[in-house]
């Protein structure tokens, strides 16, 4: 790809493509832009006119942000929005670490360690992706709360984690694993066979191959999947709703946001800045790690 001016390298002719892309990029940005503008407007203005009119005679204010971040009580909670952001982090980081960490090892095992039911396990995991999340909420919560009893014997003891942060990130880990394994398997399985076999011939066992070859080569894939996991978990409402028990102590931002949006009527002056605040951290994560996308998630799977 050294040649410059390689117009033929681009399947679509440039001017039209640029135009189409520009239009789509604008369309994709306008709704969010509307939210940004709205979050700086006064309450009366939000309810009476559209946000696009506010450029004619701008009366913007920072009061909305001050209210949700630094003031307590009322519609925003006892300590403002920041504790909810901490909760979101405390749920998301462990869940991403565990699902990607365990997922990568499982993907390696399924791709490179031959054993009898390897295929069945892999297909089984793949099939579990289709299990609707909602159907495992209740049995899983019951399991956390009461353990497993069979014929009066406790087979698995009660885990005292209900209503804690662990009870939120553990389900996230469980629910995320099948997809993580599937995506990472695509990548790991496509690593060059010669490299792997050469290492094996040199006497490296699975632990060494994984640490010295698979792990370093997989960094781009790990990074991109970690980003997706981060975004999905950060943005989840359903799991938090059920497992966090609705307490402010462990509720993530989305739950708080849903409460703000749902129960208080049209308090756009709180909802808009709160929604904006909730997307700041995911955006930072995305922009700081996005260069890995270029190197390629799944790039290896193309043969």
């Amino acid at each position: 790809m050294s040649s410059k001016g390689h117009a033929a390298n681009r399947p679509f002719t440039s001017p039209i493509a640029s135009m189409v892309v520009t239009v789509i990029a604008v369309l994709w940005t306008v709704p969010t832009f509307g939210l940004v503008v709205t979050s700086f407007r006064k309450k009366e203005d939000i309810l009476s006119t559209g946000w696009w009119t506010s450029f004619k005679n701008p009366t913007f204010t920072f009061d909305n942000f001050r209210a949700i971040l630094f003031e307590s009580g009322g519609t925003v909670g006892e300590q403002g929005m920041i504790p909810f952001a901490i909760n979101s982090l405390a749920i998301t980081i462990p869940a991403v670490l565990l699902s990607v960490g365990l997922g990568l090892m499982a993907a390696y095992a399924l791709a490179w360690i031959p054993f009898r039911f390897s295929d069945h396990v892999f297909y089984g995991l793949f099939a579990l992706q289709g299990v609707p999340l909602q159907l495992s909420l209740l049995p899983l919560l019951t399991f956390f709360a009461t353990g497993v009893q069979l014929f009066g014997h406790t087979i698995f003891p009660q885990l005292h984690i209900v209503g804690t942060l662990a009870s939120v990130w553990l389900p996230h880990t469980m629910f995320g694993l099948p997809l993580v394994i599937y995506l990472l398997h695509n990548f790991v399985a496509a690593l060059p066979r010669e490299v792997m076999e050469a290492a094996r011939v040199d006497g490296a066992n699975h632990f060494e191959v994984f640490r010295r070859i698979v792990l370093p080569l997989s960094i781009p894939a790990i990074a991109s999947i970690a980003i997706f996991q981060f975004l999905w978990i950060w943005n989840d409402l359903l799991v938090a709703l059920v497992f966090a028990g609705g307490t402010d102590d462990v509720a993530p931002l989305t739950l708080h946001l849903a409460n703000l949006g749902g129960s208080l009527g049209s308090h756009w002056e709180n909802v808009a800045p709160a929604a904006l605040f909730s997307i700041i951290i995911p955006l930072i994560v995305f922009f700081s790690l996005q260069r890995y996308f270029v190197r390629g998630l799944l790039a290896g799977s193309v043969k």
């Binding site: 681009r10 493509a17 640029s18 994709w28 975004l231 409402l237 989305t254 946001l257 997307i279 995305f286």
Partner: peptide, 27 residues
């Protein structure tokens, strides 16, 4: 692919991914 300002345009289109469906629904 290989367009000028590729990363910038991609970031704009990707941005909604960073927004929860709760936030997206509000938007």
């Amino acid at each position: 692919n290989k367009m000028k300002r590729e990363a910038f345009a991609k970031s704009l289109i990707f941005m909604p991914m960073a927004i929860s469906f709760v936030g997206g629904s509000l938007i």
